[in-house]
Write a protein that binds this DNA or RNA. Structure first.
Lengths: 207, 207
DNA sequence: ACGATTGTGTACTGAACAGTCAGAAACCTA
DNA sequence: TAGGTTTCTGACTGTTCAGTACACAATCGT
């Protein structure tokens, strides 16, 4: 009995995320979002309550998408946990996939953690953004810590090491590649960083 | 025969840097800079050629200031190089000092690498900013690599390890703490990250 | 003390901005 | 096919922005 909406909500949020990534939050105007998504200004305000609403929903969608990665890749039996961590590290340093079907990333700068990027720009004055970014970090860190514990149970990582400490360190490395990868290092170098980090993980003392 | 300028250039750039840090580049208006520095718009344009000029000069000044840190802390004889690296790591994860006389940092979010923050926001469309950020990363990485080599010569780090690989990894960790430290972890956790990273450095095999 | 020269602050301009609104369009039901 | 409801569209508003122009004040050599 009413006109149905003619756009796909997720598709719009995706386009907006790309735009925010490219221009930053304050560097993106509502007209930019309108152009990028194809939505008129009116529809934008009706559906998302303006620019800030678009950001929050885009970040929420990103969070849901991001969470699946580490959870799917890192969960599993104790056996093979170390290798899962290895593979996850190798992938994570190359950025967050923008969609489910594009595993690595076309360019590293555009594949930086969306939450981290927005938090660095406006998080200081935007508690909602700050909170969402914290959640993003938390979900990755928790999944990594759980995988470390699994590897410890399997005897692949030194049982004396604090799994939370290691998870914090690995998360820091992954986020660090967002910064240095975007404006410093080549993909090969990022792989090398991941391999170095993995190689330095504390192994159990033999006997 | 002419009136001398009545403001200290470095002091103005410092205040502008604080403002850019707090609000981001696009989130800072020329009036904001004017208020923060006490300079009128006219003087601002005459001395720095507008907002973008202020940013570039502020980043250049930051770069000069930043460079001194790792160079002073990391250079020295081979003996003690490992411990210098240790101390540098412990300090670096807590941020870049805003001035020479305030060693640690009042709040971690405000002490993130200025170059990294600006590069993440506008680097994609601003080659000058991108270049300055790369230089910042490069000077830290080079100093760290040199210190690693010194520690290797002294027998404190595994001579088979690639010092450049280690330097890239350590730089990534330091930059990563800019992100996670600002919006995730406590200072104590940052110290713990630095200690973990240091502890994992590859030591020489004891015979 | 004077005038040339430079710093300083304010007022102005055209453009871009976020947000609003009224009317046109599309859909389902009847 | 007509009615009612929701979405879409594009134009409009007041505000803010970056950058410029200009008048005034301050300083120094002479």
């Amino acid at each position: 009995m009413a006109r149905p909406r003619s756009f796909d909500r997720d598709h719009v949020l995706h386009a907006a995320e790309r735009q925010f990534r490219a221009s930053g939050y304050n560097g993106t105007s509502v007209d930019d979002i309108s152009s990028a998504t194809g939505l008129g200004r009116g529809s934008l305000y009706a559906a998302f309550d303006g620019k800030h609403g678009v950001l929050l929903e885009a970040m929420t969608g990103y969070f849901a998408r991001l969470s699946q990665g580490p959870r799917k890749m890192l969960a599993g039996p104790d056996e093979g946990a170390l290798e899962r961590l290895h593979q996850y590290l190798l992938r994570a340093v190359h950025g967050v996939p923008l969609a489910a079907d594009v595993p690595p990333a076309p360019d590293r700068a555009g594949a930086a953690c969306f939450a981290a990027k927005m938090a660095l720009e406006v998080g200081a004055s935007d508690p909602e953004v700050k909170r969402l970014a914290k959640e993003c970090f938390s979900v990755v860190r928790t999944a990594v810590a759980e995988c470390v514990r699994a590897a410890q149970r399997n005897g692949d990582i030194d049982p004396d090491a604090d799994p939370d400490d290691l998870a914090y360190l690995l998360l820091t490395i992954i986020r660090g590649t967002d910064v240095v990868g975007a404006y410093g290092h080549s993909p090969a170098r990022l792989t090398s960083i991941a391999e170095s980090a993995f190689a330095l993980l504390p192994r159990p003392h033999h006997r």
